[in-house]
Design a protein around this nucleic acid. Structure first.
Lengths: 136, 136
DNA sequence: CGTAACTCATTACCTAGGCTAAAGAACAGC
DNA sequence: GCTGTTCTTTAGCCTAGGTAATGAGTTACG
């Protein structure tokens, strides 16, 4: 049961540091996360994205608007429901993701330096579970 | 290298959910975290706490003021440096921590229901590493 | 000594990134 | 066709952090 405690405080503190040492200065972590989701799922409507990111629809409206303003995302009318919109990545988003993957690897290298191999393996093993938990 | 990606988004999303589904309604996650630190380390000065929680001193001033207003923490003049103050938990904080540990276990039970044993073991194994990372 | 430089806590103000409530447009079922 | 429901957006709020500047106390050095 002590593990829950450690998990909770570890996640909270690390998220604060992640938010701060963000890989790409111009994009918030949630914006990055949305781009990642779009890269995986192709296009989606704003409310689908909101559900996937566990964010309320109005928040997603703003995030998508930001991404559109930065030219990373395109908004098109939904083919069969005129209330909805479809959000798709632009080519620019793809190249930006690629570039930031580069930086992320540098950050990783520094990070991994502080951990021994076993510790890093544990993190890697837990990462998908964290994602599952975050989504469930 | 995909693991970093998963780790980052997992931590960010889970932290958002944690912040929302907080175990104790009256205390923010960071306040809980400070109490936990105090429980481990005994008393500390505000700037020591700020360093440990990776927060700027002004933020810690406010957090400590909150905790004091809620009667969870006592502020005393530092014995040998009149600029500083020492922050110590009250008895009330201890019993509150105990009570919230109770609730946390209930949340854990629900959580563990969604995971199989292996997944849970991975989280437990990674938790201390997360803490180390958050502190380093 | 005494003064200059530094450190700790605090104050005042700002920003980011969420939220809820409400409204307008489009759809679906009766 | 109405009525209720769903999707997005707008408006306004709140929380939790940050920076810059201040005041009091301490330390180092001339």
């Amino acid at each position: 049961m002590a593990a829950v405690n450690a998990l909770r405080t570890g996640v909270m503190r690390l998220s604060r540091r992640l938010r701060h040492q963000r890989v790409d200065e111009s994009l918030s972590p949630t914006e990055m996360s949305v781009l990642g989701t779009l890269a995986r799922c192709g296009s989606a409507t704003p409310s689908e994205l909101a559900r996937k990111e566990h964010v309320q629809p109005p928040s997603m409206t703003r995030i998508v608007a930001m991404l559109e303003a930065k030219g990373l995302v395109r908004l098109e009318p939904h083919p069969e429901d005129r209330r909805q919109k479809t959000v798709t990545q632009t080519e620019r988003a793809e190249s930006m993701l690629a570039a930031s993957r580069e930086k992320r690897n540098a950050w990783l290298a520094e990070l991994a330096g502080q951990l021994d191999e076993d510790e890093w393996a544990r993190l890697a093993a837990a990462a998908p579970v964290l994602e599952k938990l975050a989504h469930s």
